[in-house]
């Protein structure tokens, strides 16, 4: 009798360990096979020309309409920098710049320079958000787009803490992490991003880096471009023309 029980416990133990291993291997396997494991090829890059942007905010409005971005949340926004002669830096972005900007309240003679900086997800080559997502809901598409799988995201907000650009927000409707996708759905249809399309001055460009005749590849070759927060080591894929040192 005693022996039977011992034998039973032994077998139950092995079954438990075995099934645990199976589940574990299965889950690890499924994670590795998931979209998060695709090697980022970064076929696309985004170029923002801060010397051209006029701060009209059409890009922000177009993004909201195209992607049903909830009020008070932003997939993209525009910042206005006003650098005064005394060296102080004033930054504002009322409603993310969506409604444009009222004239600055400073004396014109006190202003050294003023410019607009559109911001959006940088679709980094080494994205923190992908690294920290505990369930692989944030992943890199085969083309190098950093995307969120709404059906997998658990809504822990870890990615929002990890993003150095604050490009992410918790969607109050879906309760999952949300962010700019560079309009991946439109790219797949051969279109360009909504913000790029509506920009009246061509301050935003999105295109393939391997298309040698394309504007993005040519600019990448011809111009000296900057990225935001290069010290994070994330290797952002949004490149800026004329980025001032005051911009974080």
């Amino acid at each position: 009798m005693k022996h039977d029980r011992r034998e039973f416990i032994r077998k139950a133990g092995w079954t438990f360990i075995g099934s645990g291993l199976y589940i574990n291997l299965f889950s690890v396997g499924s994670t590795l096979a998931g979209p998060g494991s695709c090697a980022p090829q970064n076929l696309f890059a985004f170029i923002v020309d801060t010397e051209t942007c006029i701060g009209c905010g059409k890009c922000v409005a177009a993004c909201r309409t195209e992607n049903s971005v909830p009020a008070d949340n932003f997939r993209t926004w525009v910042e206005r920098y006003t650098i005064l002669n005394n060296g102080s830096v004033e930054v504002d972005s009322p409603h993310g710049g969506e409604l444009g900007f009222a004239p600055v309240s400073f004396n014109k003679t006190d202003i050294q320079k003023s410019f607009f900086v559109p911001k959006l997800c940088n679709h980094c080559r080494k994205p923190n958000c992908v690294q920290v997502c505990p369930v692989g809901a944030t992943y890199v598409s085969p083309e190098g787009f950093v995307l969120v799988d709404e059906k997998r995201c658990i809504g822990c907000s870890y990615c929002m803490q990890a993003c150095p650009y604050s490009a992410r927000f918790m969607n109050p409707v879906t309760h999952v992490a949300d962010k700019c996708t560079w309009c991946y759905h439109r790219i797949r249809q051969g279109k360009t991003a909504a913000c790029v399309q509506v920009c009246p001055v061509g301050a935003r460009l999105l295109g393939r880096v391997d298309d040698e005749n394309g504007p993005v590849a040519r600019l990448l070759k011809a111009r000296r471009l900057q990225v935001l927060k290069p010290e994070t080591g994330n290797e952002p894929m949004v490149f800026y023309i004329g980025l001032a040192k005051e911009v974080h």
């Binding site: 589940i23 889950s27 690890v28 499924s30 994670t31 998931g34 998060g36 992908v130 690294q131 920290v132 997502c133 505990p134 369930v135 692989g136 997998r152 822990c156 870890y158």
Partner: peptide, 9 residues
């Protein structure tokens, strides 16, 4: 069940 082991969490 579907962990991503690069995440500290």
């Amino acid at each position: 069940l579907t962990p991503k082991f690069t995440s500290a969490m």
